Computed example of a mutant assay.
Amino acid sequence: MTVDHPDLPQVVTRLRAAGCVFAEDEAALLLAAGADGGDLDALVTRRVEGEPLEQVLGWAEFCGIRFAVEPGVFVPRQRTRLLVREAVALTSPGDVVVDLCCGTGAVGVAVAAAAGPVELHAADVDPAAVRCARRNVTGAVHLGDLFDALPAGLRGRVDVLVANAPYVPTEAIALMPPEARDHEARAALDGGADGLDVQRRVAAGAPAWLAPGGALLIETSGRQAAGTLAAVTRAGLAGRVVVDEELAGTVVVAVRA
């Protein structure tokens, strides 16, 4: 991205000094935000101090769609496009789709946009995430802990259940980039001692909510894929691991018989 603006060199210099790898591109986006009425100096200062660019701008692009992102809310990662791709392959128009641990709601919205009209529900335990998702999701967004958030009428009716549940081991959070560690809700990151606590709960609860032939898709890591697969297998689902090296993404796909 290129832009002709008298403040560009100064902004780029500040961003580079702060360690921003893509300083030129980020500077162009921040300058555009300033031109749209934002306080440029304040925006640049927030970025230099380590706030994620998407939270500073107030939006993130994911799967070709622009999503509102509020401070403290988990920013959609590009590797999660694998989760969307695999879910779209299993979704038909009219299906019931549920996005658990939805954050901004990006995964569910992207699936619905690609697969055709669906009955979309999203849920998150974080009130800030739910507020943000309600800006992005055309459908119902529910506040609560995993399946406790969902209307009882969805039980046994869900065709596709996607979950980008937290899977960072607790001790590894301290090693994450400050953008995530310091500016995203801990509940969106912390997966317990081995990173799989929430995934196990999702897998255990999913069969009661899935329709016959319904699918559960969980984003995980290459290192944790075996554990995620074991969790869905224990729940009685037939699972497989999908890896995309280019996206650095790993997803476990599990189907109810």
Results as ranks from 00 to 15, higher is better:
Ala28Leu: 00
Ala112Lys: 07
Glu61Leu: 07
Gly116Pro: 01
Thr91Met: 09
Asp39Glu: 15
Leu57Ala: 11
Val141Tyr: 08
Ala27Glu: 00
Cys132Phe: 05
Phe67Asn: 09
Phe62Gly: 06
Gln55Glu: 14
Pro93Phe: 04
Asp99Ile: 00
Gly105Ile: 09
Leu43Met: 10
Val111Tyr: 01
Ala28Met: 03
Ala112Gln: 01
Ala60Glu: 10
Ala128Asn: 06
Val73Ser: 09
Val125Leu: 15
Gln78Tyr: 11
Val69Tyr: 07
Leu53Pro: 14
Val44Ala: 13
Pro93Val: 03
Arg81Asn: 02
Val48Cys: 13
Ala115Asp: 06
Val141Phe: 14
Val75Trp: 06
Ala112Arg: 11
Asp95Gly: 02
Arg134Ile: 09
Gln55His: 15
Val69Ile: 14
Arg85Asn: 04
Ala28Gly: 10
Leu43Phe: 11
Asp124Ser: 03
Glu86Lys: 07
Val111Thr: 05
Glu26Phe: 01
Glu119Trp: 00
Arg135Pro: 10
Arg79Cys: 04
Val109Gly: 01
Ala115Leu: 13
Arg81Asp: 09
Arg46Gln: 14
Ala106Leu: 04
Gly139Ile: 05
Pro93Tyr: 01
Val75Met: 07
Cys132Pro: 06
Leu83Trp: 06
Glu51Ser: 15
Val111Asp: 02
Val97Ser: 05
Leu82Cys: 02
Ala115Trp: 08
Thr45Met: 09
Ala128Val: 08
Gln78Ser: 15
Leu31Phe: 12
Leu57Ser: 12
